[in-house]
Computed example of a mutant assay.
Amino acid sequence: MPVGQATRALLQQQAATEPSRPPQPMAGVVAQKVYARYVESFAHPIPERAASPMAKK
């Protein structure tokens, strides 16, 4: 199969399928916890570099 033909076939198949149901809103309690975590994230400074377990010491 030529390069790109498989991708086009998959996209056509995806477009031809029935759409999924509409997105559902988050429950109030979950939304409150997500927002609280978001707001709390501003209490910490953004590090100059993110720590990585792959970094060489």
Rank of each mutant, 00 (worst) to 15 (best):
T7S: 04
T7F: 02
R8G: 02
R8W: 05
A9D: 13
A9R: 09
A9Y: 10
L10V: 15
L11H: 11
L11N: 03
Q12D: 10
Q12K: 14
Q12T: 15
Q12A: 11
Q14H: 03
Q14R: 13
Q14S: 13
Q14G: 05
A15P: 00
A15Q: 15
A15T: 05
A16R: 09
A16Y: 02
A16Q: 12
A16C: 02
E18K: 04
E18W: 01
E18R: 11
P19M: 03
S20N: 14
R21W: 00
R21Q: 03
P22K: 07
P22S: 01
P22D: 13
P22T: 01
P23G: 06
P23M: 03
P23K: 04
Q24T: 02
Q24R: 14
P25H: 09
P25W: 03
P25F: 00
M26G: 00
M26H: 11
A27F: 07
V29H: 03
V29Y: 05
V29I: 10
V29E: 15
V29F: 08
V29K: 10
V29T: 14
V30R: 07
V30I: 12
A31Y: 05
A31C: 07
A31H: 09
Q32K: 06
Q32V: 09
K33Y: 05
K33L: 13
K33V: 04
K33T: 01
K33D: 08
V34T: 14
V34F: 08
Y35H: 02
Y35C: 03
Y35R: 11
A36L: 12
A36K: 06
R37L: 10
R37A: 13
R37H: 02
Y38V: 01
Y38L: 08
Y38R: 12
E40I: 05
E40H: 06
E40R: 10
S41W: 08
S41C: 03
S41H: 02
S41N: 12
F42D: 00
A43N: 14
H44I: 11
H44F: 02
H44V: 06
P47S: 06
P47V: 15
P47H: 12
E48Q: 13
E48L: 11
